[in-house]
């Protein structure tokens, strides 16, 4: 598959946006400027960028507790995102969702989710609606290796395969279910092996390589659009930061050496090296992307910080739809 210059820039831009958004968000959380807990996506950028480059705004995704990266890659507005993390009225959810429920229905982003494997059944329902309406849209459920052990995942996978729904089940296998290594929570190495049990293709790709993810997702999304049913796409990846925040809560569950080894495979550095080597970009052009995104983030953080808190009168608003 030939990757165009535009696609390479697109993948790179989405990954840089995620990286900078998350690094800044992590700092704001650990300096107690942002309330609550953030699960940061740094290290896994290639997965969100590679998949989302194949989707339109009308295609839906469901996300996870580690959800900022998915919304950024889907085209999320930094201002509304930071404002939501700050809990302000100008945020995506008016401050009612926060990091773990951030969403944008207009972009087909059906929410980060605080429940492990909460998303796959919802994405399956969205895929059902697409098929019912015949609108040609595809739904993608992001979930982790840990979620692949939940009953909700199995039920959604089986139903999607049985009904040939336009769904991609995208497993971000970062090697840990929270703090428990994969080998201690499942007897298989490849989550994609489970696909055969549902009667769908299972594909493994390098989740640290945005082009590899883009290509694998391209076929899975195309297959779904053709009406041939779901694919279980497993992306092998790694979270550079801890389960929560950057430094985390200091649990000893993986070695510094392991983290360093994975950081050598940084997906942003890899795509920049490739773009320069094949001559589609100069180092200066790529650095300029980072600079622009840093400005975008700084402006959005200032917007979030300056935004008003939601009024107490909104407390009971939108528990129900009264229309």
């Amino acid at each position: 598959m030939d990757i165009s210059k535009e696609t390479l820039f697109d993948l790179h831009h989405r990954m840089v946006r995620i990286r900078i958004f998350e690094e800044e968000a992590g700092k704001l959380m650990e300096s107690a400027k942002i309330p609550g807990a953030l699960h940061l996506y740094v290290g896994e950028e290639a997965v969100a960028a590679g998949v989302m480059c194949n989707l339109s705004d009308q295609d839906q995704i469901t996300s996870t507790h580690r959800g900022h990266g998915h919304l950024v890659a889907k085209g999320g507005d930094f201002k509304k995102m930071y404002a939501e993390l700050y809990g302000r009225s100008t945020g995506y959810c008016g401050g009612k969702g926060g990091s773990m429920h951030i969403s944008d229905m207009d972009l087909g982003m059906l929410g980060a989710n605080g429940i492990v494997a909460g998303g796959p059944p919802i994405a399956m329902g969205a895929a059902f609606a697409n098929k019912y309406k015949g609108n040609g849209n595809v739904a993608v459920a992001f979930f982790g290796d840990g979620a692949s052990n939940e009953g909700a995942f199995h039920e959604a996978a089986n139903m999607a395969a049985t009904w040939k729904l336009p769904l991609v089940l995208c497993c971000e296998n970062n090697g840990y279910g929270e703090f428990t290594p994969q080998a201690n929570h499942q007897a298989i190495k490849d989550v994609a092996d489970r696909a055969v049990g549902y009667g769908m293709p299972g594909v493994v790709c390098d989740g640290m390589d945005a082009v590899a993810v883009y290509e694998a997702a391209h076929e899975a999304v195309a297959r779904a659009r053709r009406g041939e049913g779901p694919t279980l796409l497993e992306c092998k990846t790694y979270r550079f930061f801890d389960h929560v925040g950057i430094r985390g809560i200091g649990l000893s569950y993986r070695s510094d050496d392991e983290v360093m080894e994975w950081k050598k495979r940084d997906a942003i550095q890899a795509i920049e090296k490739r773009m320069i080597e094949v001559g589609v970009a100069t180092a200066e052009e790529l650095a300029a992307v980072h600079d622009r995104v840093k400005i975008e983030a700084a402006e959005a953080i200032a917007f979030g910080e300056a935004s008003p808190w939601p009024d107490e009168s909104t407390l009971l608003k939108d528990v129900y739809n009264n229309d």
Partner: peptide, 16 residues
């Protein structure tokens, strides 16, 4: 049952 309920959530959120 969990899948069926998820079907209801996802399909209703998408206009059905």
């Amino acid at each position: 049952e969990e899948g069926i309920m998820g079907l209801g959530v996802g399909a209703s959120a998408c206009g059905l």
